[in-house]
């Protein structure tokens, strides 16, 4: 059964309360949201295996802190989509603005279009697949998880990176401090294969290059002071 909630006639508070209650009840319900018209904080804080489809574009922090829920945006999203996501799947059919998946701890963020700057900033275990291109400063201080980009990456990819893995199929405009290209080993092919399949991406793992931390900034060293 699908319940439709119209954001043009229903207050955001009521929409989120309804979704949060359904998720908490682990009801496996389906919801459809109409007329988001760029509204902020839509479908945030869900904690349970419900499915939400948003027909249109959203504003800031759509699907923020998601747990277990499957959220699909049939449109584009504003800054900070799926920020601090814990688990579940968030799919964006259009483009994502800056900070997509910021500080995410888990789950899959699947962006069918492009993501702009700071995608995966400070990510802590989330998997992000971007079918298009990504902007500058993506995966800044990224700690854990995988960022897969089928298109090109902008400037300063992976600056001050920790242990997150970055896979880019296209070109990389520039690498950030301490980020280097690394060998694509069989275990990485496996990770990629799995993520590409989950994301429904038409690409071969072997086409990607892997980037990661050279770990030179892990402990202060005066000879690398210029990179701080």
């Amino acid at each position: 059964m699908t319940t439709t909630l119209d954001l043009a006639t229903t207050e955001l508070r009521e929409v989120n309360t309804t979704l949060q209650a359904a998720a908490k009840g682990k009801a496996n319900e389906d919801f459809e949201l109409t007329n988001p018209r760029g509204a902020h904080a839509v479908a945030v804080g869900l904690d349970g295996p419900i499915s939400v489809t948003i027909n249109g574009s959203t504003g800031y922090y759509c699907a923020g802190m998601n747990k277990e829920a499957t959220i699909t945006v049939k449109g584009s999203t504003g800054p900070g989509v799926a920020e601090n996501m814990m688990s579940g799947v968030v799919t964006i059919e259009g483009d994502a603005s800056q900070y997509a998946g910021a500080t995410g701890h888990g789950g899959l963020l699947n962006i069918k279009g492009n993501a702009s700057s700071r995608c995966g900033i400070s990510m802590k275990g989330i998997d992000i697949v971007v079918h298009g291109n990504i902007g500058h400063m993506c995966a800044f201080m990224a700690q854990k998880g995988n960022l897969v980009v089928l298109g090109d990456a902008g400037d300063a990819l992976g600056d001050s990176l920790y242990e997150a893995r970055l896979f880019v199929r296209g070109s990389v405009k520039s690498l950030g401090a301490d980020c280097v290209e690394k060998e694509l080993r069989p275990e990485h092919i496996e990770i990629l294969k799995d993520l590409l399949e989950k994301a429904g991406a038409d690409a071969k793992p072997e086409e990607f290059k892997r980037y990661g931390s050279s770990r030179k900034l892990y402990n202060f060293n005066i000879d690398h002071a210029g990179e701080y």
Binding site: G38, T58, S76, G135
Partner: peptide
């Protein structure tokens, strides 16, 4: 913010993008 575009005619088929730094 995108919200400001919601009422513009033909916005659903517009080319929407973010200016580069």
């Amino acid at each position: 913010e995108y919200r400001a575009f919601a009422d513009l005619p033909g916005i659903d088929n517009a080319r929407v993008w973010e200016p580069e730094p």
